[in-house]
Structures are given as C-alpha cells and as structure tokens.
C-alpha cells in the first residue's frame, strides 16, 4: 500500500478553505479568493481576507497570466514518483492579480526558464484531480 502510494505523484489534499480552488481546477478553471470589502485578491485561501480580515470573500476567476518570480530546478528526486521528471522546474508564479502560487513550468527546458518570464496557466490531470501549472505565454 505505502509502496504504491510512493510510486504515484501526490495529489492535493485540500483544507476546508482551499476546497473550492481544487474543485474549480477539475473544470480547468483557476479561481482565486477575493475580498468584496477591499477588492483585493489574497492567497492561500481563508474565510477572512488577509488584508482587511473581512469575512466577505468570494471566489473570482483569475486571468491565468503572470510572471515567474523565482524558480529552481530539481536535479534529484525527493520522492520516487518524480524520478522520471528530473530535471524539473518548480516556480513561484506571481499572477497578474498579485498573488503568488507555487507551481511547475511545463514545456520549456529548465535552462531556458528565467525570472520575470511571462507565463499562463495550464492544467495537468492526475488521479481524479487537476493541477494548475504554467507554460510560457505566447
């Protein structure tokens, strides 16, 4: 059982607050929590706005575009399921809405990824989940 678990890439195990994010991702939509009181986006999801603590928050579609704030390249797997992926890129993506998401950059060789590069969202399906990832914006 545990061997089987380790051979598969992890799927997100949401918190109660992040569940809508992952449910929307299944429909290939990137939703972000936004505060109705102060109109700002925030992340990670919470029942209260991290800027003004208002409970009046709701989920809004992101444009799905942004830039690579920083990135790293894994040359060794820390989890057996990623063995076939090395070298792979993990990035901090700053969306145009201002929030930052941890993600992967797909479709570009690691040596060509740069900070501040423009990216747009794509989705990778995995074991019933769908995971927002990013690729170079055209």
């Amino acid at each position: 059982m545990s061997d089987d678990k380790r051979s598969r890439k992890p799927v997100p195990r949401p918190s109660p607050e992040s569940l809508p994010f992952w449910e929307a991702a299944k429909e290939r939509r990137l939703l972000l929590p936004r505060c109705n009181a102060c109109s700002r986006f925030f992340f990670p999801p919470s029942q209260r706005c991290r800027h003004c603590l208002s409970p009046d928050v709701n989920w809004v579609a992101s444009k799905g575009t942004g830039r690579v704030y920083s990135f790293v390249v894994y040359h060794r797997p820390y989890h057996p399921a990623f063995e076939g992926d090395v070298p792979y890129v993990v990035a901090i993506v700053e969306l145009d809405e201002g929030v930052r998401l941890l993600s992967n950059i797909l479709g570009t060789p690691p040596e060509d990824v740069r900070c501040d590069m423009r990216v747009r969202v794509t989705f990778e399906d995995r074991d019933g989940a769908s995971i927002p990832m990013f690729e170079l914006a055209p």
């Binding site: 195990r13 949401p14 990623f82 941890l102 992967n104 995971i131």
Partner: peptide, 10 residues
C-alpha cells in the same frame, strides 16, 4: 492538508 507543494514535486 497537503497542497501547494508536494503535488508539484516541491
């Protein structure tokens, strides 16, 4: 909860 990390190989 395990999210915004391990699923990306982070």
């Amino acid at each position: 909860a395990k999210e915004f990390g391990p699923e990306y190989g982070y």
